[in-house]
Simulated assay, not measured.
Amino acid sequence: MIYTFNGSELNAYFGLSTDYARERDQLTKEQGLIHILWNQSNQASTVFVDNTPIVLQPNQLTTSTYLQKVAFEKGTSPIAAFSFNREFYCINTHDQEVSCNGIIFFGTQSIPIITLRDDEIDKFEMLYRIFVDEFTTRDNIQGEMLQMLLKRLIIKITRLAKTQLITKELDNNQIEIVRKFNVLVETHFKTKKQVADYADMLFKSPKTLSNLFAKFNQKSPLSIIHERIVLEAKRQLLYTDKTAKEIAHELGFDEVSSFHKLFKKITSMAPQRFKHEAKNITIGKNEQLVGKS
């Protein structure tokens, strides 16, 4: 079942699907959606994000944005999805309130998977029931109430993500630097490709950033920048008809050879070979998948 709210004045949209894998075709007409996916079943489910399989165990959540392509295995157990556009709730505008950008949305690290502990499951299920109740209550403050609930949901997930996905060795100020770095890379990776560029924007030295990320994970700031560039190149190769030369220029490379060198360094293959092999895999996989969005 799909519950929806439409704010006609600003084209605001917020939807709750109880079985997103089967109901998603009804949502694809909406553009620019951000999703929170929650496996409420008692079975593991596989979600493909940009052709990468993500296994969601029972009571695990993940997120996706309008930049990513999502597909599901046929027969996937019901996965609930909260889907909204920026006209309904802009996570950039409200970043100071929820601090989710760079952690659960638009991050440069791996796709986030958040696990609900036993003491959290009841709280999330209660919040879910309140969402359903509010979606079915039509009055002039419904949109405001749903925004408040969505904000609460995002904050709760972000808090869990900080404890589960970020090392406890980092204090809150250090976590905030990591988060802001991720957001800046997501915003500027096409034009800024050096760690010093981001260090300047964060008023830190490149060495400080490198030391901080050495504590955070095994990836250096430069590796994160490079991987974000290559991720975008992969998306373009998989989902558009653009040539490697066109993609290179779009990603800010003056020389196509520099783009080829970086792509091969990250993927161990040339762009055209990646496109050929990925599409061959996708052709076979599509027979087992529910449609992409």
Score class of each variant (00 low, 15 high):
N217C: 02
I2Y: 05
Y128W: 07
N11G: 13
L61T: 09
D171H: 05
K215A: 02
L209N: 04
D95A: 06
M1N: 12
T267F: 01
A214Y: 08
S223D: 12
G291K: 03
A80H: 08
A44L: 04
F203C: 01
N59W: 03
V49I: 15
K204A: 05
L170C: 10
S223I: 00
E246T: 11
E134Q: 15
E73S: 13
V47D: 12
E169I: 02
S77R: 11
R86L: 01
S258M: 11
E87N: 14
S205A: 00
L16F: 06
L146I: 11
I130C: 03
R159L: 03
G143S: 03
N182W: 07
D25P: 12
P221N: 08
L165D: 09
T243H: 09
E9L: 13
M1P: 15
Q218Y: 13
T191E: 12
N211R: 14
Q288I: 13
R159S: 07
R273A: 10
I130F: 03
K151G: 11
F82Y: 15
D241F: 10
S220L: 02
D197M: 04
G102C: 12
G143P: 09
K69W: 02
V98H: 15
K204M: 11
V132Y: 00
K156C: 03
I121D: 11
Y13R: 10
K69S: 06
L160S: 14
Q31Y: 10
T18G: 05
K264G: 02
M269S: 06
S8C: 05
Q26V: 00
G284N: 15
Q31F: 06
L27P: 09
K261E: 15
N286A: 05
I266V: 15
M126Y: 00
A44D: 15
K264F: 06
T62V: 00
